[in-house]
């Protein structure tokens, strides 16, 4: 790989390869700090660089000026090699050593109630910030929730949804379905509530230390969801034209959340259930969730 245009960064190694492109760990030669270089490939249209990309990148830069504690810092934007019909650019982010998925692995004995509360609050804080800036993350999962060495959450991998669409089509990397909201799985229009669904799944994972719904296809993912939460009544099934029919699901042997995570407290259960609400319009918002009893009560170690 070449970095002719970014002399100031020395690539060290590849740290990730997702559907959204490749991420490298690199060293900023000027400061000596580690950074994460994210390679993004943008197709050039008839009229140059697409508006979506311009809009998303400038929004990312705008967000950065707020210095939100739960958002990963964008340090720089560079250009890669010049291509005929594509623009290669590198987004330079602060490097955070671990993500929530490795953090969970390292805590095989589980988290205390206080830890879960604090991690959940920080995730919601970051997401509320994105939502108030009209950004839907779309792909919240433990892999792109970074955890700093002192245990704080920083959201990564947001804000380029439309830019990424192009790259998604090109890669065969499977995108995880596990944190997807029902409306996404059903192919409906969606908005900020999809992120709340993902957070609901992640909070359960903080209690149980394993993913809540591990589906292998859209349909399988939905039936795994219904197995835990129950199938919504037919009246709740979306009226829009969708290929997946209500009566194509047979739910038997239901298992409830409190059986999956017996250590859950009552207020956490209530919050999680209001996040895992089938109807996105009735799902709790990030701001409402932050004011939920779960975050207001006295910390109790469980």
């Amino acid at each position: 790989m070449s970095f002719e245009k970014s002399h100031t960064y020395e690539a060290l190694n590849r740290i990730g390869r997702g559907a959204y492109g490749t991420v490298y760990k690199a060293k900023d030669k000027k400061t000596g700090n580690d950074v994460a270089l994210k390679r993004v490939c943008v197709p050039l249209s008839e009229d140059g660089i697409p508006m979506n990309t311009l809009r998303e990148i400038s929004l990312l830069r705008q967000l950065n000026t707020h210095d939100h504690p739960n958002i990963v810092r964008l340090l720089d934007v560079c250009h890669g090699q010049q291509m005929e019909r594509e623009l290669i650019m590198y987004l330079v982010f602060e490097h955070v050593e671990q993500d929530l998925s490795t953090y969970i692995e390292r805590h095989s004995k589980g988290f205390s109630g206080v830890q879960i509360r604090s991690l959940s609050r920080e995730i919601l804080n970051g997401v509320d910030f994105l939502h108030s800036n009209r950004i839907v993350h779309r792909d919240l999962k433990p892999q792109n929730l970074l955890v700093t060495h002192d245990g704080h959450i920083k959201l990564a991998d947001f804000g380029l949804a439309k830019t990424y669409d192009f790259e998604m089509k090109l890669t065969s990397v499977v995108v995880t379905l596990w944190y997807r909201a029902p409306e996404v799985l059903l192919g409906l229009t969606y908005a900020t509530p999809v992120d709340i669904w993902s957070i609901g799944c992640i909070i359960v994972e903080l209690y149980s230390l394993k993913p809540l719904f591990c589906g292998e296809s859209d349909g399988d993912q939905l039936s795994k969801i219904f197995r835990v939460l129950g199938k919504p009544p037919e009246s709740e099934w979306p009226e829009e034209n969708i290929s997946i029919k209500w009566n194509s699901f047979n739910v038997n042997s239901q298992i409830s959340i409190d059986r999956i995570c017996p250590n859950i407290c009552e207020t956490a259960y209530d919050l999680i259930m209001s996040m895992l609400t089938f109807n996105p319009k009735r799902r709790i918002t990030a701001l409402e969730a932050l004011n939920h009893r779960f975050f207001l009560e006295e910390p109790i170690n469980t």
Partner: peptide, 16 residues
């Protein structure tokens, strides 16, 4: 069009 990329790089995508 060729200049657009140079321009973007020069202004560091700081568009707002």
């Amino acid at each position: 069009m060729t200049l657009e990329r140079i321009l973007l790089q020069t202004i560091k995508f700081d568009l707002q």
